[in-house]
């Protein structure tokens, strides 16, 4: 029995961009970059947990950045400082960092609300002596860019900040490359990134039920030695190798 649900007190919960919120609270569990936590809403009509990836953990302070995309995250964004909320212990398979070698280089490719988990990853990689640069794409309004402890290349769909276009166009235009690639963002972006950099580690998103591996609500098709299998995004993922993901859905 190593998992549980805890009640935490919100220290801060504020908008940092249009439809993007940052929430923080004290959290004693160790988290790995790429893992997520389930946040449980206080209202009784919205039952399912909201799985939110870890953006930053400093000491006991956990910060999550989430998109306000529906009624659930709307309710979450209304919770004020001091409000209590149920949260799970860390869940899922984070980024694979065991094989990462000191002195090598890593490129973090993020799009929109897929950017937050790359922040914790950037710190973890720097700690391992890896040179890090981030390529971050936004629709319009950027967020978190000043928090990255590394060189950041910006792209925006509307041309409001940085390169006018998507992250992959920017990477191609500047001829960027690295020893390791990590990416999180919209599915179309992940697919394009995985085609360009097959060795990339992707953090996938899927509509989840329980968020802890019991219901099989969220699955990702992957190529295995014995054919195609359906893995649980909440447990076997959310991080998968780009070359393994089957993109037909």
């Amino acid at each position: 029995m190593d998992k549980k649900i805890e009640i935490v007190t919100i220290l801060e919960n504020k908008f940092i961009a249009k439809d993007v919120c940052e929430i923080s609270f004290n959290y004693s569990f160790d988290v790995e970059p790429g893992q997520f936590v389930n946040l449980y809403l206080n209202s009784k009509d919205k039952l399912l947990p909201r799985p939110i990836s870890v953006c930053r953990k400093e000491g006991d302070l956990l910060t999550l950045v989430y998109g306000v995309v529906g009624k659930g995250t709307e309710e979450l964004s209304s919770y004020e400082k001091g409000c209590k909320i149920r949260v799970s212990t860390p869940l899922g398979q984070g980024f694979y960092l065991d094989q990462v070698e000191r002195g090598k280089s890593a490129m973090l490719i993020g799009g929109g609300i897929g950017i937050p988990p790359l922040l914790e990853l950037s710190y973890a990689l720097l700690e391992k002596g890896v040179r890090v640069e981030a390529v971050l794409g936004f629709k319009e309004q950027p967020f978190l860019i000043d928090d990255f402890p590394c060189n950041v290349h910006l792209a925006s769909d509307e041309g409001t900040v940085g390169f006018h276009g998507n992250v992959l166009d920017l990477i191609k235009a500047k001829g960027l490359n690295a020893d390791y690639y990590f990416s999180c963002g919209p599915k179309a972006m992940l697919k394009a990134v995985a085609e360009y950099f097959p060795d990339v580690q992707l953090s996938m998103e899927e509509r989840m039920g329980c968020g802890y591996g019991a219901c099989l609500g969220c699955v990702c098709k992957t190529k295995e030695a014995d054919g195609i299998t359906r893995k649980k995004v909440c447990q076997d993922g959310p991080v998968f190798w780009g070359r393994d993901v089957v993109w037909d859905e």
Binding site: D45, L48, E206, R207, V219
Partner: peptide, 22 residues
């Protein structure tokens, strides 16, 4: 194999699932 995703939808006071018995 079960059904395609999304397999889960939240509803007022409940949820819909179509896992398809994977």
């Amino acid at each position: 194999e079960g059904t395609a995703t999304p397999r889960i939808a939240e509803t007022y006071g409940g949820m819909l699932n179509s896992i398809g018995l994977q």
